[in-house]
């Protein structure tokens, strides 16, 4: 946790975006470690693969398109700071109402969880209960998530284009000469 806070402060203080991207990767990896400590292996796996791996890669990819330095701030950060602090205080105030961590009497453990734990081995027969909840009991949600990922891909495709007309004309110019002859031979 201390490490998380230290990384977050470093990210805020830095101006070099390359280091910021790397630090956010480290931040995600640390979060994955926290999830493992909490016994949420599936979540930790996702966090490590998606957040620490692929999003860091995509951020680096977009960094090569933009610059490596952050522009210095032009306005005094008083108003944003106030908003952030207020939100933080409200969130902390909200958590004071939540049940204690690991409390077996907490509403989340009394609603559908007991049914999943008792009936899922018989009904689904899959040892990993996370999978059975994710794919079967909550099939609708997962379908929605898949559609969200798909929509994100379509959005990027629509905005940036790929390999095709615009992308290729910009990309293939240098090695066009090298590639054309092989195409002709075929």
């Amino acid at each position: 946790m201390t490490f998380l806070v230290a990384t977050a402060i470093a990210i805020v203080r830095m101006r070099c975006l390359f280091a910021v991207v790397m630090l956010s990767g480290i931040y995600s990896l640390t979060t994955a470690g926290v999830f493992i400590i909490l016994d949420a292996v599936d979540v930790a796996f996702t966090e490590a693969a998606v957040a620490a791996g692929v999003s860091t890669m995509l951020m680096l990819g977009s960094l090569t398109l933009t610059g490596h330095r952050q522009a210095p701030a032009r306005i005094a950060p008083i108003l944003p700071l106030t908003v952030v602090i207020l939100t933080g205080v409200v969130l902390l105030w909200g958590t004071s109402d939540m049940p204690r961590f690991g409390d077996p009497e907490a509403p989340v453990h009394r609603h559908v969880a007991p049914r999943y734990i008792q009936d899922s081995p018989g009904e689904i027969g899959v040892p990993n209960m996370v999978t059975s909840v994710l794919a079967s009991y909550r099939g609708f949600d997962t379908l929605g998530e898949t559609v969200v990922v798909f929509t994100a891909g379509i959005g990027v495709l629509a905005l940036l284009g790929i390999g095709g007309r615009r992308g290729r004309s910009a990309k293939d110019d240098p090695d066009d000469v090298a590639k054309r002859p092989t195409d002709d031979h075929e």
Binding site: G61, S62, T64, T142, T146, A152, V156
Partner: peptide, 25 residues
């Protein structure tokens, strides 16, 4: 359905990666 999720996620991640990298020259 896991296979479906896997195919979509892999394809979209590669799509986004290619879309970003094919723009740098």
């Amino acid at each position: 359905i896991e296979l479906g999720v896997g195919i979509t996620v892999a394809a979209v991640m590669l799509l986004i990666f290619f879309a970003f990298t094919s723009r740098e020259d």
